[in-house]
């Protein structure tokens, strides 16, 4: 079953002659993992913005579970698609403890509670920091917490936007492995090939707004 269908997506912005995205088309099956690579300015982030409704395409269509993405309410869309970017402080409540962060994430996701074992699955040792304020975690731990908050109820589609680029290689490995184990369909956006997990089915390359 197709989870995501993108047909001839073109994005133009006023004052820029060349389209940011030009006739981009690809599909993503449920539970499929793909990677989208490309240099800075190739249109990766703009594509994500179109997917999450922050930008409206000039032409073409995006279907999520067979329905036009614009037909979903923002709340419903955010339930189906979650993003994890490179700035971990954007994805956690820094002034709350790890436990409070997880409790809120569980409550919002409609999950009765979370277990320490779940946190250990995301990153070994994370459950030792339950009482620690998120602001006091290291970058890798914070990114792991952000991932745990998302994966407590895995979304239909997880977009990983250069999510390991700001952390060291060991922490990045934990994050990639946890994503492989727990996430459903995912799109990994990167400009570094070593960030792509082994379970990735396809690698799409975006060049100057076009898929090559």
């Amino acid at each position: 079953m197709k989870l995501l269908e993108i047909h001839n997506l073109t994005l133009r912005v006023p004052g820029v002659e060349r389209p940011i995205l030009e006739k981009v088309s690809f599909n993503l099956d449920a539970l499929e993992r793909i990677a989208l690579i490309g240099a800075n300015g190739s249109g990766k982030s703009s594509l994500v913005k179109c997917l999450v409704g922050q930008m409206t395409a000039s032409s073409g269509e995006i279907l999520l579970a067979g329905k036009a993405i614009s037909s979903y309410t923002p709340e419903k869309r955010r339930n189906l698609i979650r993003i994890l970017g490179q700035d971990s402080s954007r994805y956690v409540f820094l002034d709350l403890t790890v436990q409070e962060n997880m409790q809120l994430a569980a409550r919002f996701a409609g999950v009765s509670c979370f277990s320490s074992a779940f946190l250990e699955q995301i990153r070994p040792g994370l459950s030792k920091h339950l009482k620690k304020r998120a602001a006091f975690l290291s970058g890798g731990e914070r990114q792991a917490l952000a991932l745990a908050m998302i994966l407590i109820k895995p979304p239909e589609l997880l977009i990983l936007d250069e999510h390991t680029s700001a952390i060291d290689i060991v922490n990045a490995q934990h994050i990639v492995e946890a994503t492989e184990r727990l996430a459903q369909a995912s799109i990994t956006i990167t400009h570094r090939l070593n960030e792509i997990s082994s379970s990735t089915a396809r690698v799409l390359k975006l060049e100057a707004g076009c898929l090559s």
Partner: peptide, 17 residues
């Protein structure tokens, strides 16, 4: 905790629907 979460990162609350 909801109000503290708002003060800490209101945009994340929105991301969490």
């Amino acid at each position: 905790s909801y109000l503290r979460a708002f003060g800490s990162n209101r945009y994340l609350l929105r991301d969490m629907s």
